[in-house]
Amino acid sequence: MHAEMLVRMVNQIAEFYGTGSAPDIAANETLSHLKRMWAPRMCKQIVEIGSDDPGLSPISRVAVGLLAAAQAQKRVAG
């Protein structure tokens, strides 16, 4: 998928969960949404894009970082 589109999608999700919530809670809600709603290849791609992508919002960066950690943990466990 287009990296730009994936970044935009994560930002939209983070923007929703970020309203009126502490950043760490919003990041975790965003992470939960990605894990529940996105196909693994999309999750993998956004992790490859990286949490330091300048297009990502601050909450998105944290969420993508958490997603990368979760995937690494799963690889280790699996």
Partner: peptide, 18 residues
């Protein structure tokens, strides 16, 4: 145990060859 592709994701994946 993991979600699959939605319709627009399928189109995107078709275009990237996967």
């Amino acid at each position: 145990d993991e979600p699959g592709l939605r319709i627009p994701n399928m189109f995107e994946a078709a275009l990237d060859g996967s």
